[in-house]
Computed example of a mutant assay.
Amino acid sequence: MIRVCLKPNSLFRNIFLVSLLIQTFIILSIILTRKDFMNEYNNYTFIEYQLKEGTELIYSYRYKKYPDDLHFPILKDVISINRDNIGIDPKQIGMKYPESENFKQVVMYHFQPIITGEERTLLLFTFQTFINICRRYKLTYFLTYGSLLGSYRHHGIVPWDDDIDVFMNETEKRKVILTLGNVPGFELSHLQNYQWKFYPRFYNTLLGFKHRWPFVDIFFFGENNTHVWDNTSTSSVVDPVEVYRKSEIFPLVSRPFEGLLLLAPCNVHTIMKVMFTEHDWCESNRYWHKLEKRSPRPGKVLCAELYFLYPFVFRSSKGNSSVIVEQLQLRGRTMKTYEFKNQCETLKY
């Protein structure tokens, strides 16, 4: 047997060298990791959100744009909002009630937009943030109620609407809280037996409420093996006896909405007939979400009476095939065309 004896000085020197090598390795790893992180960081682009009060900047945040994120074409990479311009009373926007009984002027009064361009920008930015969080964390959502109607009739927000409506799965409520409830610059209101609301913080709108405007209105659906229904509350906006066949909702398909293709029920035509029985008629807002109160100027006309004012979707069949063609038109001019293979297949150009 060979015995190796180390002198104390030699032993301490070897321990010191090993320790020095380990520390050097750790420092190099940190430097290389930081370099990789900075390279990755520099490869990302960002959306900068600025909230101002007058000329003073009171909040700013940079949101990283992930490769799979969706972005509304109308939104720029810098979203600058003046807090003083959000939550304006609709009575202060647009025209007053016409003195004469000119039919076209009366229609324009009842169906004029109730949000400004800056408010619309903030609403779409809020919805864009919501969509991308859902996509990253694989949360189920799809357009419903007024927003589904907007996609069906206008390929976007109903021109006189002021919020966004989506359905989410009631089994994912906890995951919704953990994700949408932790987005910088936004908050999630999750009251029991009521729609949840995802909205930007730091605004002075709806000060008497636990949420702010603008918001994404979140409804929750229940389901079994065959049917789907609104299970948000016992006083849902949908009659509790009204349910949908699961095959009319799933698989979800993509529909046009403000320049993007967003998830919606696969048989949107049938769903529209259930939600809005008189779908040839257009009804102005009965409720102002931005003020959380009933509208003093409801109106109802055949949608054809509004063709001169807003873009509408017109449908036709493509020859003898099952393809449905949707054209967004304004005063006879086609703005965009989409084609569906059939009611329950993914939308394509």
Rank of each mutant, 00 (worst) to 15 (best):
Y44R: 15
I31G: 02
P67K: 13
L148R: 05
F16H: 05
F12C: 05
V241I: 13
Y145F: 15
T270C: 05
I22M: 11
W160M: 01
E283N: 12
P251S: 09
T55S: 09
K52G: 00
Y141G: 06
W281L: 13
T270A: 11
W281D: 09
H190R: 03
N193Q: 13
S60R: 12
Y97M: 15
R34I: 15
D163A: 05
L260R: 11
P184K: 09
K96A: 12
I26C: 11
V237R: 10
E305A: 11
H110A: 08
K290L: 06
I27C: 14
I115W: 02
L262W: 01
I58T: 07
F220K: 01
I26A: 11
E119H: 04
R62T: 09
Y152T: 05
G332S: 02
Y141D: 08
I31C: 08
V323Q: 15
L262K: 03
Y194E: 11
D162E: 05
L20E: 08
E242C: 10
S29D: 11
F308Y: 14
T121A: 10
N193F: 10
L20D: 03
S236M: 07
F257T: 02
W196S: 02
Y63E: 11
V158S: 01
W229P: 01
S322A: 14
D280R: 12
N267Y: 10
L188E: 04
V4K: 07
L328M: 11
R120K: 15
D84G: 08
F142Q: 03
D69I: 13
H289Y: 05
Y66V: 09
T144K: 01
G94I: 10
E339C: 08
Y137N: 13
R83D: 00
F167C: 00
S284Q: 04
S100L: 12
H269K: 12
I15F: 08
E99Y: 12
H289T: 04
C303Y: 01
P200S: 07
W196Y: 02
C266Q: 02
P98Q: 07
I218L: 06
K210C: 02
G208C: 03
P73F: 13
N267K: 13
L139D: 04
S147W: 01
E187I: 04
N204F: 03
R83Y: 00
E119C: 05
Y109P: 08
S60A: 08
L191I: 06
C303P: 03
Q195P: 14
K293P: 00
V268S: 10
M168V: 04
F25P: 02
